[in-house]
């Protein structure tokens, strides 16, 4: 889903770097690809430097090409984090797209640094003990030209942000929440709905950071006040991965969400 919208948003003159993850399987097998973009598949931790090398080669060849790194949350939050941070610090010219399905879905749904607290995965059958790594804030701290979050539940917002990112030079970071029915355990036909509820319950803030300024996207404005948020249980109760979550754990997830919004307010 995130992939189709990417094509719509970015138009021509795009080259993609795909790091090992579920999308390297989606592409299909064998020599022919299902994308319209040229694609370099590469090892986990190498997406950003491969893209940096490509961007610099295009520059040397006077080719105006937007290089996009397509990575999962595991490739971003965990194994590829160092190389992404390095590329961001050097402000390499690329769009880094983190497709966040909150676990290592390619290898069968193990925990990642981006898995939320209390979610069950195949390596945390009792529920994860730690909070989701706050990647967007970490990227904002790199002070790169553009950081944004999106959800596949709000495709127009996602496409707008991709388009905006394409017009900017330097390191652009976009993290899109992509609920995975098989890992999160819900009915696949409800993917868009789950992605929407994640935003409505304020679990997943839609924000943008540009020229040193943080703004909250329209879909998330209601989250700035605690009393206008949709109850968190609307999000947790429709997914099997939170099944049997204790009151205490639900509270700790809520505390995490509140702290996100406190932080956003303080940065605005």
């Amino acid at each position: 889903m995130a992939m189709r919208q990417l094509g719509m948003a970015l138009g021509k003159d795009v080259a993609m770097v795909v790091v090992a993850g579920c999308s390297s399987v989606i592409q299909g097998m064998g020599p022919k690809d299902s994308y319209n973009y040229p694609v370099v598949n590469t090892a986990f931790a190498s997406g950003p430097p491969v893209a940096a090398g490509m961007a610099r080669a295009y520059k040397a060849r006077n080719r105006d090409v937007t290089v996009v790194v397509w990575a999962g949350d595991g490739g971003t939050a965990d194994i590829g984090f160092g190389s992404m941070s390095g590329a961001a610090e050097r402000n390499e010219d690329m769009i880094y797209l983190c497709v966040d399905n909150e676990a290592y879905m390619n290898s069968g749904g193990q925990r990642s640094g981006s898995t939320p607290v209390s979610a069950r995965t195949s390596t945390t059958p009792e529920g994860k003990r730690e909070n989701k790594k706050a990647l967007p804030f970490i990227m904002i701290a790199h002070n790169v030209p553009y950081v944004a979050t999106a959800s596949v539940g709000y495709p127009m917002d996602y496409v707008d942000k991709l388009k905006k990112a394409k017009e900017i030079k330097g390191f652009r970071y976009l993290q899109v929440l992509t609920p995975d029915p098989y890992g999160w355990l819900f009915d696949p036909s409800k993917t868009a709905e789950v992605a929407k509820i994640a935003v409505q319950t304020c679990y997943w803030p839609l924000i943008e950071f540009q020229e040193g300024k943080l703004t909250v996207s329209n879909e998330s404005l209601h989250c700035l006040k605690g009393n206008t948020r949709r109850p968190l249980t609307d999000f947790t109760s429709i997914q099997g991965r939170f099944k049997g979550i204790t009151e205490e754990n639900l509270k700790s997830l809520q505390t995490y969400i509140d702290s996100l919004w406190d932080r956003i307010r303080s940065m605005m």
Binding site: A15, V17, V40, T42, A43, A45, S46, G47, P48, P49, V50, A51, A52, G53, M54, A55, R56, A57, Y58, K59, A60, R61, V65, G82, S83, S85, G86, A87, E89, R90, E92
Partner: peptide
């Protein structure tokens, strides 16, 4: 030549690979 001063050797080879794949000597 453009020089990428990467943050690790893994990235050094990755950067050279990306540049070579995109059409220049690396």
């Amino acid at each position: 030549a453009d020089i990428i001063r990467v943050e690790s050797e893994h990235s050094a080879m990755a950067g050279a690979f990306g540049a070579a794949a995109a059409g220049v000597r690396a």
